[in-house]
C-alpha cells in the first residue's frame, strides 16, 4: 500500500469500527472504506480541482466494479470543485479509442482511464501523454501513465489461489475461465493461480480452458458450465476459477440449477449478486475476493488533484487492498465497502 499517509487515520478508524477480517489485508484501505465519514477529514486535505476539467474515461459502466469506480470519480471531481468530462465507451473498443483520440483535441487538465486491453489502448495513451495531458489509469498499468491505481492483483490472485488450494486440500480438478488474459488484471491473477498450483501436482486443470465472453458474460458462463456438467459427472470437477466474478456468477447459477453445489467457485470483484449467493445455505461460491472500486475511484481523483497542485513525486503505482470474502464475513465486507 503506497498511501502511507492514510495509515494512522486508517488504524484509528479500523479500531473504532471494530472490524476484524482475515489477516493479511491492508489496514489502511479497510479503514478508509469502513469509515467514509472519518476518511473525509483526510479527504479534505486534498488540493482543490476548482477550474480543472478532468476527463473520466472508462471501458464501460455495465459491471459493478467499473460503475462504482466511475461514479466515485465523478463525485470526487465535483466534490473537489472540478468539472468531470464523462466518457463511457459502453464496452466498445472503437468508441473507447475514438474518445481517447478526441481527448487530444479536447485538452482536459488530466485524464483518468479505467480498464481495457493494454495492447489496444497503449498507442493512444502515448498520444495523450505526447500532447502533454497528464494521464492516470485505473487497473491498466501503462508506461505512459503518471500513476496507475489498481487492486493489488498479485496479492488478490495469490489469496484466491491459496484459498482454492486449501479448500481442495491440494488435490482436485479445476475448470478455469481464461478469456481475457490480455487484460492485465486478469492475466496477473491467472499467473498467480498457476504459480501457486505448480507446487501442488495433484491439482489438475481441465483442458481446454473456458473462454468468458462480453457481453452476456453471466448467461454465457451459465450455459457453458451447464453443458460441461453433463460431460463431467459428480466427482470429476472440484472447483471452477475465474479471473472476475461474472463468469463465477453464471457458473454458480448453473451449479445450483443442476444440484451440483459440491463444486466450489472462486472469482474476483465482489459483485453484489455473488455476495448474495454467498449467503445461501447450499452455496457453491467458496470465495470471492472483493474489490473496493469506490475507494479506488476516489483515490485516483485525489492523486490527480495532488499532481495538478504540484506534487510530482507520486508513486508510479498505487495499490488498494482487496478483501477475501467468504460466507463468514460477507456482511462485514459489504459494510466496509459502503454497500450495506
Amino acid at each position: 500500500m503506497s498511501q502511507n499517509r492514510d495509515f494512522d487515520i486508517g488504524r484509528r478508524a479500523l479500531l473504532g469500527a471494530g472490524v476484524t477480517l482475515a489477516a493479511g489485508l491492508g489496514l489502511s484501505s479497510l479503514a478508509r472504506a469502513a469509515t467514509p465519514s472519518g476518511a473525509a477529514s483526510d479527504d479534505s486535505a486534498v488540493p482543490s480541482l476548482a477550474g480543472k476539467r478532468i476527463a473520466i474515461s472508462t471501458v464501460g459502466t455495465s459491471i459493478y466494479f467499473d460503475s462504482r469506480a466511475f461514479a466515485a470519480q465523478v463525485e470526487e471531481v465535483k466534490r473537489l470543485g472540478g468539472t468531470p468530462i464523462t466518457l463511457d465507451a459502453g464496452r466498445n473498443d472503437k468508441a473507447m479509442v475514438t474518445q481517447l483520440q478526441n481527448l487530444v483535441t479536447q485538452k482536459p487538465d488530466a485524464v483518468i482511464h479505467t480498464l481495457g486491453t493494454l495492447s489496444i489502448i497503449d498507442p493512444w495513451f502515448k498520444r495523450i501523454a505526447a500532447a502533454g495531458i497528464p494521464l492516470f489509469t485505473i487497473e491498466v498499468p501503462s508506461q505512459y501513465a503518471i500513476n496507475t491505481i489498481s487492486a493489488d492483483n498479485w496479492s488478490t490472485g495469490l489469496i484466491l489461489a491459496k484459498k482454492l488450494v486449501a479448500d481442495l486440500r491440494g488435490k482436485g480438478r479445476v475448470l478455469v475461465f481464461n478469456g481475457f488474459y490480455g487484460v492485465p488484471s486478469c492475466g496477473i491473477r491467472y499467473d498467480q493461480l498457476k504459480l501457486v498450483t505448480k507446487f501442488y501436482p495433484q491439482i489438475e486443470f481441465i483442458e481446454p480452458e473456458l473462454r468468458d465472453a462480453i457481453p452476456n458474460t453471466v448467461q454465457d458462463a451459465r450455459s457453458q458450465v451447464a453443458a460441461l456438467l453433463n460431460k463431467y459427472p459428480k466427482g470429476e470437477i472440484d472447483a471452477i476459477w475465474a479471473a472476475w466474478d461474472l463468469p463465477q456468477l453464471g457458473a454458480s447459477q448453473a451449479l445450483i440449477d443442476a444440484g451440483r453445489t459440491e463444486i466450489k467457485t472462486y472469482g474476483v470483484d465482489g459483485t453484489p449478486e455473488v455476495l448474495d449467493l454467498l449467503k445461501r445455505p447450499d452455496t457453491p461460491v467458496a470465495a470471492v475476493v472483493s474489490q473496493q472500486p469506490a475507494l479506488i475511484g476516489r483515490l485516483a481523483v485525489q492523486n490527480v488533484a495532488r499532481y495538478l497542485a504540484g506534487e510530482h513525486d507520486l508513486p508510479k503505482e498505487t495499490f488498494v487492498e482487496t478483501l477475501l470474502t467468504t460466507a463468514n464475513n460477507v456482511d462485514d465486507v459489504r459494510r466496509i465497502r459502503g454497500d450495506a
Binding site: 468530462i85 463511457d88 468508441a95 478526441n102 479536447q106
Partner: peptide
C-alpha cells in the same frame, strides 16, 4: 456528432 458531443462535454450516456 460523436465528436461534437464529446467536445461539448455532453455525457456520453
Amino acid at each position: 456528432l460523436v465528436n461534437g458531443f464529446q467536445l461539448l462535454n455532453i455525457s456520453s450516456f
